[in-house]
Every structure is written in C-alpha cells, then in structure tokens.
Amino acid sequence: MASQGTKRSYEQMETDGERQNATEIRASVGKMIDGIGRFYIQMCTELKLSDYEGRLIQNSLTIERMVLSAFDERRNKYLEEHPSAGKDPKKTGGPIYKRVDRKWMRELVLYDKEEIRRIWRQANNGDDATAGLTHMMIWHSNLNDTTYQRTRALVRTGMDPRMCSLMQGSTLPRRSGAAGAAVKGVGTMVMELIRMIKRGINDRNFWRGENGRKTRSAYERMCNILKGKFQTAAQRAMMDQVRESRNPGNAEIEDLIFLARSALILRGSVAHKSCLPACVYGPAVASGYDFEKEGYSLVGIDPFKLLQNSQVYSLIRPNENPAHKSQLVWMACNSAAFEDLRVLSFIRGTKVSPRGKLSTRGVQIASNENMDAMESSTLELRSRYWAIRTRSGGNTNQQRASAGQISVQPAFSVQRNLPFDKPTIMAAFTGNTEGRTSDMRAEIIRMMEGAKPEEMSFQGRGVFELSDERAANPIVPSFDMSNEGSYFFGDNAEEYDN
C-alpha cells in the first residue's frame, strides 16, 4: 500500500510504541512475548500442572481467558453494579484439565481477579502490559475465525453469508486497541457500523446529549479505520460520505453494504499476525530463551520457528480426527482463516481442507461434555516452508469459486491468482447506482469489472525454506488448481455463540 510509510507498523501498534527502528520493534515485541511466557509459567505453578498438562491447549485457553477477564475493567465495573446470582464479580476462573488415573478430569478453578492481575503485572515488570493482553485477544479471535462461520451475524446486519472472507476479527472485544483495529476485516468494521446506525434509528437519543457526542466521535473513528483499509480513492470518498452524514440511517447502511461487497474484489488491507497460545510461549521462556534479547516478529519467520520446536497437546472428542484438529489450530496460529487453501497447503506441506470436510468441533470443551471418553493427542503445528504475512489485500483475480465463501483475504505475501467468483459478486451490483453516491458507485463498479483474471497478485513473492531466515531465496510455489480455494466452501461450520 502506498501510504505504508505514514502508518505505524503493526509491531508498533502491538507494543504501543512511538516510531521505533526494526531492532527496537523486535525487542519490544519480544518483551511482550516474554511477559506472556513468564505469566503462563507462574500460572502453571499456581495450578500445580504437570509439564504435559501445561502444554494442553484447553488449559492455555482457560488461563488466557482468566487474565483477560481480570483486566476487563468495563465488564468488571458492570458486574459490580449489576450483581447477578451466583456470579462473584471479583473472581474469575474456568475449567482446568488434569490427568488422573490414566483419565482426563475437569476441575473448575476460581481465583481472585486481583490475584491474577498481581501475577500478570509481576510477570511483566510491574506494568499492565496491555500489548500482551491484546495479543491474547487476537489469538482467540484468530481461533474463532478458523472455527466458526459468522453466517447468522452477517444475515442479521443485512449482509450476504458468502462475504465471510471479510469477517476477520469479528469476535475481537471493543477494547483491543490499535492492534485489534489493524486485524479487523472490512466486513467486521461494516458490521460494527451498521449495528451502531441501527441503534440510532431505533433509539432517538442515541446521537443526542453528552453521551451522543461520545457516540458520534466513536462512529467517526470507526469510519476512519474502515476508510484506511480501502485502497481505492472511490471507496475512500464513499467512506467520507458515510462519516460526514448528519443523521446516519438506511442510506448509510446501503452504502456500507455496497462497500463491503466491493471489497470482495477491490480488497481492503487487513493486517495478519501470528499470535500463538500462551502454552507455546511459556515452555520456550522456561527453556531459557530470551525473546527480548533475541527479538521477535509476528509477521516473519519467528512464529514458524517457534511452532517448529513446540509440543502442544489437545483434548480430542471420541469421533474427532486429531489431524483435522491440528489443521484448525495451525490455521489459527498463522492467522489464515480466509487465505486461499492452495497457498496454505503449499506452505504447510500437507493438504489443507475446507472447514466442512474437517471432523472436528471447536477447541474448547463445553462444561456439560462427558470427560470419560476424552483422549488427548499432539497437535501437528509444523510447516514445510515459511512466508511473510501481508497486510495488503493483493490485486484481484477471477477463479472458480464456491457456493460458500466467494473470495479470499490473503494472509501471506505469496504470488498467486486470487480466487473470487466474479459473476456471483457482480450480480449483486445491478441497477442500484442512484442517489448521492452514484458517481462513486459507478466508478467502483467500473474498477471491479476491469479486474483481470490473468493478473498475478504479489508478483514474484515466494515462500522460503525454514533454514532461509533472511528470506534470501524465494520459492514461487505451484498450486494444484483442481483443489478448492475457499475454506468455508459450501460450508456447515458451527455458528459462533458468545
């Protein structure tokens, strides 16, 4: 993207840094990872977990959730003011799984939030270390993106479920800051804005008074975040219109849905970061690795190297396929839920299948599930090659597409044709070009129609051997075009429920 120079890199967003050079960025990201790792080690000690239990991804998720809940100030305040039966607002906890007599047992633990905050700050040299908290939120978000298709949420806001490739980060909490905003897809931002506008339509006082002023500035800020994701002048001009509207209503909703559809071809720039579970960072720190000293990046080879040398386990339900569970977590670790499966298959070195073909449910185990038949197995999170994460949407291309997802959002900077089903997408653009945004709409449609099938995206960008740390010898991959490109292809993934 041309304006790259004016933006802070995501590592800076990730670490609240002012302008830093590459070495400083690597050190501050490393410091953040160190903090998460030290916190995780301490929690495993508190909970008396064995090494194996500490490497269980379900335990990692519970521990991450506990610290996120302990620092969720708004919710904590709300819980104190609106006490609900049987919930102690000062405590947080969740299921911890232990191996007892050759069987997995679930144990519900409860801790004072104050105590968890103390352990977290102690692991982070006394700081609140917001960057580390956001990092864990993005890992949870990436896992949700890989596990669930947001059909219901899309339909509720009037969008087409086939636009799911635009929904990265749709389950990120509001408090995820600049680093969170960077990884949100165009569809996620559109959905947040539509929800806001709908509230304004239904509630006369939404934009009024002292609160209304705050609401208005939040609305304009979200519009600017979305505008910054678009790469064409016409899309940005249309966002200006939406932002400046005196009284946002149905016309703005129409414009936003139009823009979301246009992003299936004229893709937005959305950041991709490899955020790993805390149970990967903990053992690495415990083994003596100093992330701050060595430096770390979320968008280069580092996460690949770390996963190459990590042992992570997962509980497996009786009829689940461990290899499929591994694929789910591998995609989440690489922030690749909406990437082209052919690119992923090449990088991973084994075939990556669409969601609907995987015999696996989510990673988390519900409290009512029976533990008797639970097994555990090693997650295979290694890769054959590594590639640089991208934040450009890439230019655009036609490809055989599917009944489910009709476009992709690249996660890796790797040369390819970008699949999208042009006739299906263009069919949504018939007729409606009147109104105050008509010239911009016409211009956007013209650009979409001009998108050429034979153009290559990320020209000359390749993948790298894991021994090639400096990215000196790019390998331009070859793809098996007979395979499906979309992950949520004609899909039956479970729906995400809060």
Rank of each mutant, 00 (worst) to 15 (best):
A472F: 10
I475F: 07
L79A: 07
C333T: 09
A271C: 07
A427L: 14
H140V: 08
A85W: 00
M66H: 05
D497I: 12
R99P: 00
I197P: 01
A234D: 15
D340T: 10
E80F: 12
R117S: 12
G37V: 13
G450Y: 14
G450F: 09
P423K: 15
Q398R: 15
D145I: 05
Y487H: 11
Y219M: 12
N368G: 14
S392M: 05
N250Q: 10
T6N: 03
R236H: 04
E115T: 03
R174I: 04
N483H: 12
R8C: 04
R348C: 04
E469Q: 15
D101K: 05
T157M: 08
P173Q: 15
I444L: 13
P322K: 05
N492P: 00
G94V: 08
A387V: 10
F429S: 01
A263I: 01
N321F: 05
G5K: 00
L379R: 01
D468T: 14
V100Q: 12
R243I: 06
K325C: 03
V270S: 12
G30K: 06
I444T: 14
D16V: 05
T215K: 13
M159W: 03
H324W: 11
S9N: 15
F39D: 01
G288E: 08
K305I: 11
D255K: 10
T437H: 07
A427C: 15
I63E: 03
R461W: 11
M137L: 09
G228H: 06
M159V: 08
A131E: 06
D51E: 09
S376C: 11
M331C: 07
K98E: 05
I36N: 09
V285Q: 04
K214W: 12
A218I: 04
T437L: 01
A286M: 12
L226K: 07
P277V: 10
G187R: 05
S392F: 04
K452M: 05
L143V: 08
N224F: 08
D127T: 13
Q58V: 07
T15S: 07
G300Q: 05
L47Q: 04
Y496V: 13
K31V: 04
L193F: 07
I194S: 01
S376P: 13
G94C: 05
W139C: 10
M447D: 02
Y385N: 12
I25H: 02
K7Y: 02
A366H: 08
N417A: 01
D128T: 14
L154N: 02
K357G: 05
V109R: 04
S170I: 03
T424E: 09
M481V: 11
Y313W: 11
F420R: 00
A411T: 15
N432K: 13
R384I: 01
A442L: 12
A366W: 04
R38S: 11
I63N: 02
E465R: 13
W330R: 09
L341P: 08
G249P: 07
M196S: 10
A373S: 14
I365P: 01
R243L: 03
F304W: 00
F304Y: 08
G37R: 08
K90N: 14
M189A: 08
T130Q: 12
F346Y: 08
Y289V: 11
Y289W: 08
A451H: 13
T360D: 02
G94D: 13
R267V: 00
T424C: 11
H324L: 05
T15C: 14
I257D: 00
M159D: 03
E24C: 05
S165T: 13
M440Q: 10
R446K: 13
I36W: 09
N498P: 00
V343P: 02
R416D: 00
T171N: 10
N395Y: 13
R389K: 14
V280P: 07
S314Y: 07
F291V: 09
T146A: 15
M163S: 04
L381P: 03
E64M: 09
G460K: 14
N124I: 10
T171F: 05
T188H: 04
V242Q: 06
V67S: 11
R221I: 09
F230V: 12
Y219F: 11
I57M: 08
P423E: 01
H140Q: 15
Y313D: 04
K293M: 08
T130P: 12
L307Y: 01
S486K: 02
R348G: 08
A2G: 01
N492D: 10
A451Q: 13
A442C: 10
L79Y: 10
G212T: 08
D439I: 15
L341F: 07
T146R: 01
R384V: 07
S367W: 10
L79M: 13
T157W: 02
G228V: 09
W386L: 10
F338W: 12
F489H: 12
G177E: 11
V29T: 05
K103L: 11
R246A: 07
R118W: 10
K184D: 02
M238D: 03
S287Y: 10
I444Y: 04
V190K: 00
L341M: 09
E192F: 04
M371F: 02
F291A: 11
A411E: 06
K77H: 14
D203R: 01
T433A: 08
V363Q: 03
W120R: 07
V67D: 05
S359T: 10
R213C: 02
E292N: 03
L193T: 11
N142I: 09
Q231C: 08
Y148V: 04
G404V: 07
T232L: 11
D112E: 14
L226D: 09
P89C: 15
I116S: 01
D145S: 02
M371I: 15
T378G: 06
A237D: 04
T92D: 11
S345C: 11
G300N: 07
R246I: 01
G431W: 06
F412D: 00
R470S: 13
N142A: 10
L341S: 08
R384A: 06
Y10K: 12
D51G: 14
I445Q: 07
R195A: 04
G86N: 15
M239Y: 05
M13I: 10
R118D: 02
F420Q: 02
S50Q: 14
G404K: 08
R384G: 07
N309S: 14
I406R: 08
E64V: 12
S60L: 09
V408W: 02
S402V: 10
R156Y: 08
P477N: 01
S245A: 15
A427S: 13
G200C: 07
I57R: 06
K229E: 09
G177A: 05
F338Y: 10
G185N: 06
S28M: 03
E484C: 00
P161L: 04
S269H: 10
L266T: 11
V329Y: 05
L266G: 01
S345H: 11
D290C: 08
R243F: 12
M331H: 05
L49R: 09
Q327D: 12
I347M: 13
E107R: 04
E254D: 12
W104L: 05
G132H: 06
V343W: 00
R38G: 13
E465D: 07
W104E: 01
R102T: 05
L256G: 09
A286C: 08
I406G: 00
C164D: 00
R106L: 08
M66D: 10
M456K: 14
C333L: 04
S467I: 12
N498R: 15
A428Q: 09
A179N: 07
G212L: 10
N334A: 12
V352Y: 10
A233P: 15
G158P: 01
S217M: 13
F71S: 07
S457K: 00
R243H: 10
P161K: 06
T433V: 11
R470K: 15
S392Q: 02
